[in-house]
Design a protein around this nucleic acid. Structure first.
Lengths: 185, 185
DNA sequence: ATAAATATTTACAGATCAGTCAATGTGAGG
DNA sequence: CCTCACATTGACTGATCTGTAAATATTTAT
């Protein structure tokens, strides 16, 4: 299987898992929807969990690339970019098929703290926190690490509530909190 | 089956589903761990989904009772109670076996917006929002509904991050944001 | 005590689960 | 053209899934 084929398999599997959930999605469905036979899939991924991990690696890169790029496109200053995160989120929430954060859901379905999927899901959040911390530092905020964590809490809360309410409003509500936090810095 | 037996079945099922996840938990396991045979369970709940709905109803009552009671115990004024919510959350996060919010997880596993489990999960959040709104109104805040929603975002973000990081710190971090929001009112 | 009603059990059905294997298809090097 | 290495397949395994049916135990009413 070529690199491209493999990547496309992962990309298609991502869509299915995101739409259907991890445990609720059987490998037969993955095979059927990707057009790749189950044996072929298992030739490249030893277990379903390994396929899920590959999916999460792709999603981690895609999502961070998209979010950080969008923040840079929407604002010039570090402080502006931090606020623009919530505008980017609002765009995401408004997308058709928005179903919340894939990592939160993976973490919810694979709860064991020792599980690789659980650990990798949290690792994504750490990378987000790191980026936010760099921005709060660049913005010259007082307590950059603490502020970054607060902004991350706002982001996660908005993501969860937008998914549950099927409404993008939490993005703006979280943004207004972020504005107060950043203006007081 | 007596009311008590039935309630205890629901209570035991709650523990199993919370620990194991919904889709990942088979009815055979529920029967084994509750000591009630599968046929008996199906005599009282037509489907697994109905059992899950009963579990969520119990969890909704239990959790709101516990949280609101705890907030009242920890503070006298409405504003103090709103802040105390995050102290109560911190106690919850520190409990053994804390695994995040059952409704967020139910919503993540049953994503269809028309699904009864999905709807009931969101209904729980609406009830929480209503209570917070009553408190922000009682506290004489400027925009009570908007503030309540912001506090709810902080709560949900803290719950998710505490679960993913296996750390209770998000409770305090969210509380410090709440303090800024409430002091500016 | 006895009969009717209800609760519970064991055993099972049909579907689907993750994962495998023998057989087939395919493409590159000689 | 031929061969060999490899990719891919459909058919399969044993386990587990939700849900059920017939048989048994237990409670209740008379």
């Amino acid at each position: 299987m070529s690199r491209n084929k493999r990547d496309e398999l992962i990309r298609n599997a991502l869509k299915i898992f995101y739409r259907n959930g991890f445990n609720a999605t059987g490998m037969d469905l993955v095979a059927k929807e990707t057009g790749v036979s189950k044996t072929s899939i298992y030739n490249h991924f030893r277990t379903k969990d390994e396929l899920i991990l590959a999916v999460l690696r792709l999603r981690d890169e895609d999502f961070r690339n998209w979010l950080f790029r969008r923040m840079e496109d929407l604002a010039d200053t570090p402080q502006g970019q931090l606020l623009a995160m919530f505008d980017a989120l609002e765009e995401w929430f408004a997308e058709d098929g928005y179903q919340g954060c894939m990592f939160v859901k993976a973490s919810a379905e694979f709860q064991d703290a020792e599980n690789a999927i659980n650990r990798q899901s949290y690792a994504h959040k750490v990378l987000l926190e790191d980026h936010l911390t760099r921005l709060t530092e660049a913005a010259g905020c007082d307590a950059p690490r603490a502020l970054a964590r607060q902004l991350l809490i706002l982001k996660e809360g908005a993501i969860v509530l937008a998914a549950m309410s099927h409404d993008k409003a939490p993005a703006r509500e979280a943004k207004s909190v972020a504005q107060q936090l950043l203006s007081g810095a």
